[in-house]
Design a protein around this nucleic acid. Structure first.
Lengths: 198, 198
DNA sequence: TTCGTTAACGAATATTGTGTCCAAGAGTGC
DNA sequence: GCACTCTTGGACACAATATTCGTTAACGAA
């Protein structure tokens, strides 16, 4: 793998190859989904030699990861601006702004994009943990981790559902419902009789 | 694929082959995880011919699905006995009682069992929808679906985390925390100052 | 117990995708 | 302009999937 020169200088050919491959992956994901996309598809689309692919990325997964770093950076920045559950609206908007891509990840009967979803999930867990810290959650670290998992799992499910509905509802409304459910739970949503019945 | 005879009679050889293959899949999943298990592994373990495998199941995934029907039936039955969020404890106990299997599904860095988890997730969504009906949730069907997705996603995340911790906490405690989070939310868990800060 | 039916066998084969290698040539930065 | 490094393209080894088919063995109904 070509290594970065001293002083951060990166050979223009390297930049170009990486960019072409990343763009080609996105294009192929939209076209046939992540799982169904082969390395051959990617290098054909990028118009790059096979050996070049493996010179830069160990495999398809590594290439994906390199792309997800951008998403991660974006979310962390938005979280910084709006602490707490701020990642929620940021993520929903990001998905809406790249709807074809996200639809491909989430759609196709569900099975195809499981891996990508899992990677995003992991990022959300991290953000949720930060959120809980900001909110000053009490209890043992163990319980905080559990809560972060809870939040991230719930959010990913909501996001997935929303995208499967072609993002019909406004992102702001989904964000509101999600935050309410996280903070206040279902209690307000069910009638008193059933709630007392527990 | 061999078809069932009239009057539901099924050739003993068919029963035997199916059973052997299903058992072999479970055994291999425990041994090396779902993804890592190849059709070759399964037929070796089952001591069954390659062509026989494909005579009964289109692929590895179909074989798995045939096995997951059992879990589904179990959960629906338990839900019937304890309505509401009853599936939660039932599922946790089932996982605890088959810990090696579930550990293999959920563990291994997470990537390996994504597909299996997703199948279970779909079943939980169904159960959560029933739960919301039982609890008499108000609002549009759309909102109820969203809530069901929320609950299922949150539960699967909690389950996964719990199993990754080698099921250290008692199932009953995890069930309690989960149900509290779902019904009352995080409000009680964060300090007042942070909560008001929104 | 017999006998027609049906499933299992297993070995060969086509197919698809991965990841490695290398010598020749082209682009880049100094 | 030159030395250096990246890209190329095709060949290759390998792993796994899925299909095919003639032969053999098990089944179950009578």
């Amino acid at each position: 793998m070509p290594k970065p020169q001293k002083h951060e200088r990166v050979d223009r050919r390297v930049q170009r190859s990486r960019q072409l491959l990343q763009d080609a992956l996105i294009a192929m994901m939209i076209e046939k989904g992540y799982e169904a996309t082969t390395v051959q598809d990617i290098i054909d689309r990028a118009n790059v030699g096979r050996a070049t692919f493996y010179a830069h990325f160990a495999d398809k997964e590594t290439l994906l990861t390199s792309r997800l770093e951008d998403l991660r950076a974006f979310l962390i920045e938005r979280q910084r601006q709006a602490p707490g559950l701020g990642f929620s609206l940021a993520m929903l908007e990001h998905a809406r702004d790249h709807l074809p891509l996200y639809a491909a990840i989430v759609g196709r009967g569900g099975g195809s994009g499981a891996f990508v979803i899992q990677r995003i999930h992991a990022t959300i867990v991290d953000l949720a943990r930060r959120a809980l810290q900001t909110l000053g959650m009490k209890g043992s670290p163990e319980r905080r981790t559990l809560a972060a998992q809870y939040i991230a799992g719930a959010f990913m499910a909501v996001l997935t559902w929303w995208l499967d509905q072609a993002a019909k509802l406004p992102a702001e409304e989904v964000d509101g419902i999600f935050r309410t459910l996280v903070m206040r739970g279902l209690a307000a949503e069910v009638d008193a009789a059933a709630a007392s019945r527990k």
